[in-house]
């Protein structure tokens, strides 16, 4: 490997001297290990591992030049590599890109996300047992993240993949949606992520906890039953009004202190909670009860992923 080194030694300047470091290296470049097959979206590619012939997803991550590799990125990747769970998409490899300020994350590849799964297999999704089994797997993945105190922050159907052969569900990592270095890579054709955002995220971006993921799971749960998003607003601005119109505008009783965190509360008209049984028809009573607890407005009172797994809904 060649590294370009600017050396200024004892007054004698030999800048940009190309020096060869002889290293016993097993490292090979991206192109030696993987073949690109197709572009999925900006910075995301489908590829083939030349060694194992396994299909993989390649995600290119760029970061600012010349300030070194960002610490947050190092910590996240270190953490991601430690994650091993049947319901989380595995990070297989991290490869240096030819460009200096970017790396490529290599993941196991899955083709069908929840959005397309619902579209392709609407009848399978009508079976209550399928919904229950998929929800259980989402909650297993989420409670695994939460056991490490990790907030995923971007759980949505597009990040949730299903293998149609086995109905195994896997969530993709949290680096991608949350990484600051790629703020302009949102695909406009992709579903609107804010439909799955918890109310506390919509009003106050600084304070959040693992409870925001639980809210997103609740949204997905309802969507699996009705096959359309529960809170579908046209913009992030209208999202909160949409949530209030279904779950009810928060009051001192339902969310103590909310009027203090959100000073624009008075703008919203007062709504009473709607009957979820009518909005999510076909869901058994235990499911409705769980949905209520997942979509509890006050994050402090919301059920945790671990508690949700023990809910009576899963007990038959």
């Amino acid at each position: 490997m060649n590294i370009k080194v600017g050396v200024y030694s004892s007054g004698r300047s030999i800048s940009d001297l190309r020096l060869r470091v002889s290293i016993h290296s097993s490292e090979s470049s991206l192109m030696e290990k993987y073949k690109l097959i197709a572009k999925i979206k900006k910075g995301v590619f489908q590829g083939l591992c030349l060694l194992s012939s396994q299909t993989v997803t390649l995600k290119q991550l760029g970061f600012p030049d010349n300030e070194g590799v960002p610490g947050s990125l190092i910590k996240e990747i270190t953490l991601l590599q430690a994650m091993r769970h049947a319901n989380i998409i595995k990070l297989i490899d991290v490869v240096n890109h030819q460009e200096q300020s970017s790396i490529v994350l290599v993941y196991e590849s899955m083709e069908t996300n929840l959005t397309s799964f619902i579209r392709i297999y609407p009848k399978v999704m009508k079976i209550p047992r399928t919904i229950k089994e998929l929800l259980r797997q989402i909650l297993l993945a989420v409670s695994y993240y939460h056991s490490f105190d990790i907030v995923h922050g971007g759980i949505k159907p597009a990040n949730t993949f299903i293998d149609p052969a086995t109905n195994t569900l896997k969530i993709t990592d949290f680096v991608w949606p949350r990484t600051l270095f790629n703020s302009n890579t949102e695909d406009p054709n992709e579903e609107l992520g804010f439909c799955y955002k918890a109310p506390e995220i919509l009003v106050e971006h600084k304070q959040f906890s693992t409870a925001i993921d639980v809210w997103s799971v609740g949204c997905i749960f309802a969507e699996m039953v009705t096959q359309k998003p529960l809170f579908s607003a046209t913009s992030e601005f209208h999202q909160l009004a949409k949530i209030f119109s279904i779950v009810g505008t928060p009051s001192e009783e339902t969310w103590p202190g909310f009027s203090r965190i959100y000073r624009y509360l008075h703008i919203y008209s007062h709504c009473k909670p709607k009957d979820l049984r009518k909005l999510v028809p076909g869901l058994e009573p235990a499911g409705i009860d769980l949905l209520h607890k997942l979509l509890y407005m006050d994050p402090k009172g919301r059920i945790t992923a671990r508690q949700a797994l023990e809910h009576v809904y899963f007990q038959n």
């Binding site: 600017g6 050396v7 200024y8 290296s25 490292e27 030049d65 070194g68 590799v69 190092i74 953490l79």
Partner: peptide
């Protein structure tokens, strides 16, 4: 005795990360 440019240090950081397979904790 040496003055390394930031870009060079960054390159070396990446080399260390790859060599240690990003297992940094």
């Amino acid at each position: 005795g040496y003055n390394f440019e930031s870009s060079v240090i960054q390159r070396m950081e990446l080399m260390v990360l790859t060599t240690l397979e990003w297992k940094m904790s």
